[in-house]
Computed example of a mutant assay.
Amino acid sequence: MTKTSLELLSTAQLISRFAEIGAAQYEAELDLDTRRYNRLYDQMTLVSQELKRRPGDERSHLSELYGHPNIQVRLKAAVHTLAVHPEEAREVLEEVAARSGYPQSGDARGMLRALHDRSYVPE
């Protein structure tokens, strides 16, 4: 997946690709496959950057994934929409943080803490 190939995709296709990547990240985490997870992280970043680049910052469409059945997809959709839907994204992060037994709940708590102490400022 290249930046140029992402430019050719519709917003709906990018949202679908983002969800696919998130689900694959979930599996990579379960398998403790850090190399694969990192590759997927980079791919997700490219998708998010492409959405942001589009007129009107189309990352807002990632909010469609707030109710996704995969917790990793919900977490990443919230993180990537903090700049465009701050209140709604925080609610999703709080919901994920309230769960136990998943690495995603720790990630969500860490992000909420970083937002609170302003060590992370969404762009």
Rank of each mutant, 00 (worst) to 15 (best):
T2K: 09
K3N: 10
K3G: 09
E7K: 14
S10W: 14
Q13W: 02
S16F: 12
A19I: 13
I21W: 06
I21E: 06
G22M: 04
G22N: 04
A24K: 07
E27A: 11
A28W: 00
A28G: 01
L32F: 01
D33T: 00
D33H: 03
D33V: 00
D33R: 01
R35K: 14
N38M: 14
R39W: 12
L40S: 05
Q43I: 01
M44V: 04
L46R: 15
V47F: 04
S48V: 11
E50K: 05
E50G: 02
K52H: 11
K52A: 14
P55W: 11
P55A: 15
P55S: 15
G56I: 10
D57L: 04
E58Q: 15
S63E: 12
S63V: 15
E64H: 12
E64K: 12
L65A: 06
Y66K: 03
G67K: 09
H68N: 15
P69C: 01
P69V: 05
P69S: 11
N70G: 03
I71S: 02
I71G: 00
I71N: 01
V73I: 11
R74K: 14
L75P: 00
L75R: 03
L75D: 01
A77L: 01
A78L: 02
H80L: 00
L82H: 02
V84N: 02
V84S: 07
H85M: 10
P86M: 06
P86R: 05
P86Y: 02
E87L: 12
E87K: 15
E87P: 07
E87R: 14
A89P: 04
L93H: 07
V96S: 05
V96L: 06
V96D: 04
A97I: 07
A97P: 03
S100C: 06
G101H: 06
Y102S: 13
P103R: 11
Q104C: 03
Q104Y: 04
A108Y: 03
A108L: 02
A108H: 02
R109D: 09
G110C: 04
M111T: 13
D117C: 10
R118I: 08
R118M: 13
S119D: 09
V121M: 13
P122N: 12
E123L: 13
E123D: 13
